[in-house]
Design a protein around this nucleic acid. Structure first.
Lengths: 82, 82
DNA sequence: ATAGGCCACGGCATATAATACCCATTTGTG
DNA sequence: CACAAATGGGTATTATATGCCGTGGCCTAT
C-alpha cells in the first residue's frame, strides 16, 4: 500500500545517479534537506507535488519521468485507504 | 509560484467532468471530503502523490494525465523557493 | 590510521497537508 | 420564478510532510 513511495524513490535514485548527482548535491541545489532526499528515495515519505516539480526541475527531467505508472504500483495505492 | 497547483486543478476538473463525475461523486468514491476536492481544483492545496494516485485511480486515468507538464507551469515552480 | 565522500537511519521541532464540519452562492432545470 | 443540485469558501482539529542536527557504516585514497 505504499508502493507508490517505493517506486517513486527508485525512479528518483535512478535518474539522480544518471545525472551524476549525489544526494547531497541534489538536496543542496534543490533547496531540500539532505536527509529528506534519502527518506524519499527509501520510500519513507509521501512528498507533495511541489517537491515533485522542484526535484524534476533540478534534475532536468519531466515530472512524469518520476511518477511511476499504475502498472508499477499496487492497486491499493489507487484506492482510498480503509 | 503556485501554477503547479492551478494547472493540476484544471486538469483534474477537466478529466472529472469528462468522466461525468460531480465533485461530490468523486469525493465519495475516492473517500475524500467534497470540499477538499474543490480546494484541489481551485489550486488552494498542495496535495501529496498519495492523493494523486487515489484520484487518478478513481477517475480511471493515469497519474501522468493529471500532472501538468513543465511547459505549463511557471519556471519558478521547478526551483526551490527563496 | 586517517580523512573525506556518500549514504542509511534516527529523534525532534515546525510548517502545512488532510480531514471534517458548516453555510453561502452559483448553476442548472422544470 | 422556484427548487435542487453543484460548487465556493470559511474554520477548527488532527495527521503528516519537511527541516534540522546528529551518529555510524562503507569505501577509496592518502
Amino acid at each position: 500500500m505504499d508502493t507508490v513511495r517505493l517506486e517513486f524513490g527508485k525512479n528518483l535514485r535512478k535518474i539522480r545517479k544518471l545525472k551524476g548527482f549525489s544526494q547531497e548535491q541534489l538536496a543542496y541545489t534543490a533547496g531540500i534537506d539532505r536527509s529528506y532526499i534519502g527518506k524519499v528515495e527509501r520510500g519513507q515519505v509521501n512528498l507533495t507535488i511541489e517537491k515533485l516539480y522542484i526535484l524534476a526541475g533540478t534534475l532536468g527531467c519531466s515530472p512524469k519521468d518520476l511518477v511511476p505508472d499504475q502498472s508499477k504500483v499496487g492497486a491499493d495505492d489507487s484506492k482510498p485507504r480503509t
